[in-house]
């Protein structure tokens, strides 16, 4: 089986079979990262460009390591040091890069839909590494891989996603992915951070965090994104953490074997208490490790074998 599209832009567009394929491939590639010599020749002679219009540590590094472990040549472009700083448009930058004939372009951008614009223009595969508040498909894939690794399946699980849903591309991708795979998704966050009509995406919405996390298998905490909030959305960080911080008391409402997840970077003490972030229920570092495997899988599926 192969992916039906040359690009990975949205989880929304992926079929259940495609998600399974990506997760299975990621699982089989994961052991490469545990070897003494962490490299295979699969993508030798292939070029992957990481084009990041927005700050990123883990995603960019993860893509770079994923490419290198498969022997692809990876090139990182950050906008502060490129022609973008001289005013080059996204379209012109994309066409310029296309002329250098890479195989895959990975893009992160603060504007929703930016990867879609260049995917429509270029022959090459485009992977969305996060666009605005739209989607972050590789994050959802690594989240699903992490859950599946621990629970064996996604079907029938109850997952709570808590925080600033409005500004979260992680939430949107996970809503699509988890519901496609048969999990039930409950959302919670301040009503001012809950986008309109989100329940029509097949989720339940709860004002009180306690109602969302009661009896769940997984709690995903989102980073509260004050940089996207503007002003006057919510009274204060202090008030936020009083009602929406995952702490020891609240964890007791979930299942005894609950998995605690967070896409990072963490605001310690704001949405998650430090002892929880690195406590026994946390799989946050597994998520990071699986991120490399998922990205290896996508690069392999898009650029390998042709």
């Amino acid at each position: 089986m192969k992916l039906s599209n040359k690009d990975i832009l949205n989880i929304e567009d992926l079929s259940v079979d495609e998600i399974q394929l990506i997760l299975d491939t990621a699982e089989s590639l994961k052991e490469i990262s545990a070897r003494k010599i962490k490299k295979v020749p699969t993508l030798r002679g292939k070029t992957v460009i990481n084009l990041f219009y927005e700050a990123s540590t883990r995603t960019r590094t993860s893509f770079e390591i994923a490419g290198k472990r498969l022997s692809a040549d990876t090139v990182n472009i950050s906008t502060s040091t490129s022609s973008v700083a001289k005013g080059e448009t996204l379209v012109d930058t994309a066409k310029t890069l296309e002329s250098m004939n890479p195989d895959v372009i990975v893009i992160r951008h603060s504007a929703s839909g930016a990867p879609h614009i260049i995917a429509g223009l270029l022959q090459q595969s485009v992977i969305n590494a996060g666009d605005g508040k739209h989607e972050h498909p590789t994050q959802a894939l690594l989240d699903m891989m992490t859950i599946r690794e621990r629970r064996g399946t996604l079907a029938g699980l109850k997952v709570a996603i808590v925080g600033d849903i409005e500004h979260s591309r992680v939430a949107r991708s996970n809503i699509h992915g988890l519901t496609k795979m048969g999990a039930q998704v409950a959302l919670s966050g301040p009503v001012v951070m809950m986008p309109r009509h989100i329940e029509e995406m097949g989720v339940t919405v709860h004002n009180r965090m306690e109602d969302a996390i009661r009896g769940v298998d997984v709690i995903m905490m989102l980073r509260i994104q004050f940089e996207r909030q503007g002003t006057a959305t919510f009274p204060s960080m202090r008030e936020y953490s009083k009602y929406y911080c995952l702490n020891g008391d609240r964890i007791g409402l979930a299942r005894d074997d609950v998995l605690i997840m967070h896409p990072g970077p963490i605001n310690r003490g704001i949405e998650i208490a430090p002892d929880i972030a690195y406590g026994p229920y946390s799989v946050i570092l597994d998520q990071v490790a699986n991120g490399v495997a998922v990205r290896m899988a996508l690069l392999y599926l898009l650029a390998g074998g042709n």
Binding site: D131, G132, R172, R196, H197
Partner: peptide
Amino acid sequence: AKGGVMNEGLVSTQIGLQG
């Protein structure tokens, strides 16, 4: 309307544009 680039509704929620 501040910051909005499209109508606010299910579609803006789905595609992640400010409504």
